[in-house]
Design a protein around this nucleic acid. Structure first.
Length: 828
RNA sequence: GCCCUCGUAGCCCAAUCGGCAGAGGCAGCAGACUUAAAAUCUGCACAGUGUGGGUUCGAGUCCCACCGAGGGCACCA
């Protein structure tokens, strides 16, 4: 069809390097993605946010996936002519910078800000549709000033406090960790085995918000991944039950326990307190003290991982004392054991071995009595060694006899309350958030310790409390904060009384920084306040948040907590920060997470050099549903590259003029185009981007055929199809689509093109295929009008030759008609 | 141990309400173009949906059991 010269021209390959070099400076100059703050701009507004980056080096494959996915959402709303706010920033405090600084003998700022610059350049090259004018870094004093200010607001409300406690200690990071940062007994960051230390630390009182953190999830239902909501629910861990008071012989005040099974009170045959609790020390008889303390020593030696092993035999010490079961008036032994936790409930339990496996294991180990009080129909736990925690009829329980679990709980709670021996109660697994860290590269806690006045808040006018300029060995971990050794910084005057005082030398967990950054973005450079209420009104809450599931119970829980606190303080007028959440998966290789130590890293820069930015982005989004992991060994960036070149060639083939009247175009291609647009619109809004791309590929194939063997390159329908393809591709492949848009003769950027309008007339089909089944088996296909009546369709189906043959004169029991798509004939 | 999600072609993945198992891609094969290769274009083949039951006119889709994979929680009383 074409002479060889033309052929060469038509098969020209897309020079990716060249178009990247061509468009990057143009975008840089035009900044097409800045949000409008014009009060008269009445377009719909939308805040699209990606979880910000930690500047540990250049961008990697994980960033490439997450930001490619977030960018589809952002660019889609730009095309829909929304006023989109899609800001960028860095979570730039944290340990990796500090460790690098120690190695290099520098201040962490140097490494941090160099990495930020590298990532910023990479983000630009990767063509993420950011509004760069609101850029922030959490390690800037202009930012952490407000982190400190927020700490003080919480402090004033009694939501930031200091207490001595047995805390998680990471021996490798040389700092304490929050509960959320301990994963299966190991440090979330470095995987070192976490140990316990008795230390005085700062906490945020997140437990005050347990119930609300649960209740408000109702707003997120359906808009956050189910998995994340479940994880948060589990983490908050609400248990309903009762407090029950036990008298202990020789002790004045009763000891209270928390139980979820007050109905089994008559089966409580012994009593256990946490070995490492104060309570154990109060209850232990003098002559048992040495034994108890030896035991505690033993327990302390065990790591969390050993402690958590479920097959570990129960251990404990009899404290020499007896408690009185308030229901049976029986004397029961009081023991101390490490299977009871000091910081959950009251640190003491009533043990019901018949109906709780842990208690039964303990009873077996120390030959304590077992009393069945619920008849579950199962065998006697004392004989089988298997506790029966299920529901059944209460027995051996006086007034509770014959009741089921729910009624028994209700009744015993009434009795306890009447006798002032207890009451119904709720307990949560969630612990307060430990926020102090014994490291340098974080926001200093704005508190001064005065020998006369005690804890004194740094006056707001003196914020920020800047970090002193330390470097290299000065930052080396010593088990206490490096700031403590910076004497000229630590030593100060008490703001209240003026006497010699010392600054708090701990810094805040970096999760504090990230708990409010989304509030800072709209007024990122406002030096007078943390965030601007007018701007918050304009943009918040975040409409669509995009990020990894690894933050399900860290950043996402903390941010929800912060928002609720600020809501209570009257500083924000919403109580959930992120209306919708999209979790992207990980990029893995050969079924395993990529890691430097395994040496199976895929380098993003190399992938981009080989396939181009667009092909890498397209591959990330086409690989599968966004939340699935992408195994880079199983996907084909080469295929993406080929597809993009194929699409680009379409643009080159179009020979009609820019202002073509599409109405004059060939009908079947127009219908295909409009059907694709209609379908893609709903697919994008449900995040099914892989299917969007598949549909686009289909349209490319159809258009190719139309050009080569159909209506030809000059038909207006071809231009319409290629323009639609170009605009759709602009969500995934910014460079290729920009180039295509220009080839098509447009002067504006493709990001300003606007989402193509669907003409409903073109969605109507003049005939559809109707499936005719006999007993559910496909027997014929009919071409029918889409608005055919059921009666007519049934008649047509019954007349179909093949159907007549299959039925063979048999009587018909029923005919199911789903006009116009299906008829199912069921013979007797 | 408890809870959740998922098992569709050699591979990655599609399949509104239960209604023709296949849209798209990778890999494969064949052809066209080419001196040849690459590139490009065209065409082809491949599974009956992890297994066993059940509900239904009809099940990839709903229910039950089992197997397998992934994830979460895990001495939280």
């Amino acid at each position: 069809m074409n002479n060889p010269k033309d052929n060469q021209e038509l098969n020209a390959t897309l020079d990716i390097e060249a178009i990247q070099a061509k468009w990057l400076p143009i975008w840089e100059k035009k900044q097409p993605f800045n949000a409008s703050n014009d009060p008269d701009d009445d377009r719909k507004r939308i805040y699209v946010l990606d979880m910000f980056s930690y500047p540990s080096g250049d961008l990697h494959m994980g960033h490439a996936e997450a930001f490619a996915i977030g960018d589809v959402v952002s660019r889609y709303y730009f095309q829909k002519n929304y006023n989109v706010f899609h800001p960028v920033g860095w979570d730039s405090f944290g340990l990796p910078a500090e460790n690098a600084a120690i190695k290099r003998g520098e201040n962490p700022a140097k490494w941090t800000y160099a990495n930020i610059e590298t990532q910023a350049e990479s983000f630009k090259r990767y063509a993420i549709s950011f509004d760069w004018s609101h850029r922030l870094h959490t390690s800037d004093p202009e930012y952490y000033k407000w982190t400190q200010w927020l700490f003080l607001q919480l402090y004033k409300k009694g939501l930031a406090y200091r207490k001595a406690s047995n805390v998680n200690w990471c021996p490798s990071c040389q700092t304490v960790l929050a509960n959320e940062q301990v994963v299966a007994g190991a440090c979330e960051r470095c995987s070192a085995v976490v140990t316990k230390r008795e230390l005085t630390q700062w906490y945020f009182k997140i437990t005050d918000y347990s119930q609300r953190l649960l209740d408000d999830m109702e707003q997120l239902e359906g808009k956050w991944p189910e998995r994340v909501l479940t994880m948060q629910k589990n983490w908050i861990g609400k248990s309903e039950g009762a407090y029950v008071d036990f008298q202990v012989e020789g002790i004045e005040k009763p000891v209270t326990v928390f139980t979820t099974r007050p109905d089994t009170l008559f089966g409580a045959t012994f009593f256990v307190v946490a070995a490492d609790s104060k309570l154990a020390q109060e209850l232990v008889l003098e002559e048992k003290k040495i034994e108890l303390n030896n035991y505690i020593q033993e327990v302390r030696k065990a790591t969390d991982i050993e402690r958590l092993a479920t097959d570990r035999p129960k251990s404990g010490v009899f404290l020499g004392r007896y408690a009185i079961n308030p229901a049976t008036q029986q004397k029961i032994q009081v023991w101390a054991s490490d299977y009871v936790l000091a910081d959950y409930g009251t640190g003491a339990i009533m043990a019901v071995p018949a109906h709780d496996q842990r208690d039964l294991d303990f009873a077996k180990a120390f030959k304590l009595p077992v009393q069945v009080v619920v008849d579950t129909g199962e065998e006697d736990p004392a004989l089988t060694g298997v506790a029966t925690p299920g529901d059944g009829k209460l027995i051996n329980s006086g007034p509770l006899d014959g009741l089921d679990k729910v009624s028994a709980i209700k009744k015993i709670n009434e009795i306890l309350e009447k006798n002032k021996q207890g009451k119904g109660a709720v307990n949560f697994r969630l612990r307060d958030w430990l926020i102090s860290r014994q490291r340098y590269w974080g926001a200093p806690i704005p508190i001064i310790h005065c020998p006369k006045c005690g804890e004194v808040a740094v006056p707001e006018s003196e914020l920020p409390v800047r970090l002193p300029d330390l470097a290299g060995d000065q930052l080396a971990p010593k088990g206490t904060s490096p700031l403590a050794a910076a004497t000229s910084w630590v030593n100060t005057k008490c703001p209240k009384c003026g006497s010699d005082a010392q600054r708090d030398s701990d810094t805040m967990d970096t999760f504090v920084d990230s708990s409010w950054y989304y509030l800072r973005y709209p007024s990122a450079h406002d030096a007078t306040k943390a965030f601007d209420p007018a701007q918050l009104k304009r943009w918040l809450p975040v409409e669509q948040y995009v990020g990894g599931v690894e933050h399900a119970i860290l950043h996402l829980l903390y941010s929800r907590f912060f928002t609720k606190v600020l809501n209570d303080l009257g500083l924000v007028d919403f109580n959930e920060p992120f209306k919708a959440l999209l979790n992207q998966g990980q990029v893995i290789l050969d079924g395993a997470a990529m890691s430097k130590s395994k040496g199976n890293m895929v380098d993003l820069g190399e992938q981009i050099a080989e396939f181009g930015v667009d092909a890498v982005r397209l591959t990330m989004v086409f690989a599968g549903p966004p939340e699935d992991d992408i195994d880079w060994a199983e996907v084909s960036p080469g295929g993406s590259k080929k597809f993009l070149a194929r699409a680009w060639r379409l643009a080159k083939d179009v020979t009609s003029e820019v202002d073509e009247d599409f109405e004059k175009g060939e009908l079947s291609l127009r219908q295909a185009t409009h059907r694709t647009i209609a379908e893609i619109t709903t697919l994008i809004e449900s995040f099914r981007f892989n299917v969007v791309i598949a549909r686009t590929m289909e349209l490319v194939n159809v258009t190719r055929k139309a050009i080569d063997t159909g209506c030809g390159p000059k038909d207006p329908a071809v231009r319409e199809a290629v323009e639609a393809i170009t605009i759709i591709l602009s969500l995934f492949a910014p460079y290729t689509s920009e180039e295509m848009w220009e080839i098509l003769g447009h002067k504006e950027l493709v990001s300003k093109a606007g989402w193509p309008q669907v003409d409903p007339k073109l969605l109507v089909r003049d005939s559809v295929v109707c499936v005719v089944q006999v007993s559910g088996k496909l027997r014929a296909r009919l071409d029918v009008s889409p608005d055919i009546s059921s009666e007519e369709l049934e008649k047509l189906a019954l007349e179909t030759p093949n159907v007549v043959k299959i039925l063979d004169g048999k009587a018909i029991r029923t005919v199911i008609v789903r006009a116009p798509k299906l008829v199912n004939i069921v013979p007797e």
